[in-house]
């Protein structure tokens, strides 16, 4: 067979369905790349998973004896579980941003840009790949639900999975928005190192937001991670009412409805992605 024959001479590339199919294939290519990397780097994946497990078992186990049950409404490990799920998806999601920058530095991004698809398509592919990989890792952590005293109830697990998809998407989109504005990997990592810890502390993952000083509590109201943790925690209390922890996010003393939290996360992720796509599409 000749090397230089056109792939599909019958497919006119100008037509809209063909164009859409090409864009979808490009998205799939990037998601596929992420899955291949996930499958190929087992040690890396295992280490990424170990981190939240250690938090749950060591920090959770250690503090469980100290933190009185009544102050949280649930045992400390149960309280910590949504936060740990959030941490699990957060790491691979942020890795997507870091990889966009390293791809740019290594020249791989330019290869991607040569593909005959829109640049926003490429960014969408990165985002979906990151979301999928993050959710897959989070799903593994769901296996620990029993340790923290939660039932392996299919509807609870599905609800938590859906919540993690949403949180993964938002964090991936935010990481990508940051990554397209920064050219240097060092800056990205430094900024994350600076910001991630405080964001995590005012997310309600480790202790209730109500115990925070007033200004930090205000900060939590604008923290996407706080909404992520709150969403996951309320998913648990929705299915297992006797494991309902104290309230997280509150607007003027009232909890916002759960669907609204979900919509907020989705909207902020979508906005971040749109903005990133806009930045990314600017010609060099």
């Amino acid at each position: 067979m000749s090397t230089l024959t056109l792939p599909d001479p019958a497919a006119p590339c100008g037509r809209r369905p063909a164009r859409l199919r090409h864009e979808l294939r490009a998205v799939h290519a990037l998601v596929y790349r992420d899955l291949l990397r996930l499958a190929g780097q087992r040690t890396h994946t295992a280490l990424m998973l170990l981190h939240p497990v250690l938090y749950l078992l060591i920090l959770g186990g250690g503090l469980a004896a100290l933190v009185p049950h009544g102050s949280l409404g649930v045992g400390y490990q149960t309280y910590l579980f949504p936060g740990v799920l959030m941490m699990t998806v957060q790491m691979p999601a942020i890795t997507v941003g870091a990889r966009l920058i390293s791809d740019r530095e290594r020249g791989y991004l330019r290869e991607l840009l040569m593909a005959p698809v829109g640049r926003s398509t490429l960014l969408l592919g990165c985002c979906l790949g990151g979301t999928l990989v993050a959710t897959a890792q989070g799903a593994v952590l769901l296996g620990l639900a029993g340790i923290v005293g939660l039932p392996y109830d299919p509807s609870l697990l599905l609800l938590l999975l859906a919540g993690m998809i949403l949180v993964s998407f938002t964090i991936t989109a935010l990481a990508l928005a940051l990554a397209v504005t920064l050219r240097r990997g060092e800056t990205f990592h430094m900024l994350l190192g600076l910001v991630m810890m405080p964001l995590l502390f005012v997310s309600g993952a480790f202790f209730p937001l109500q115990t925070l000083p007033g200004w930090a509590h205000t900060l939590a109201g604008a923290n996407p991670l706080a909404y992520g943790v709150d969403l996951l925690r309320r998913c648990i209390s929705l299915r297992v009412p006797d494991q309902a922890a104290v309230a997280g996010i509150e607007w003027a003393g009232r909890q916002p409805p759960l669907p609204l939290e979900g919509v907020l996360l989705l909207a902020s992720g979508a906005l971040a992605l749109l903005w990133a796509a806009h930045r990314f599409s600017r010609p060099e």
């Binding site: 792939p7 590339c13 199919r21 090409h22 294939r25 490009a26 790349r33 290869e111």
Partner: peptide, 21 residues
């Protein structure tokens, strides 16, 4: 640049899909 963590075949497959094959 190629993706160093993927195999030769995988690199090619990702690229082919990017080009809509």
């Amino acid at each position: 640049a190629l993706d160093p963590d993927l195999t030769a075949d995988q690199n090619l497959h990702v690229q082919a899909r990017l080009y809509g094959l």
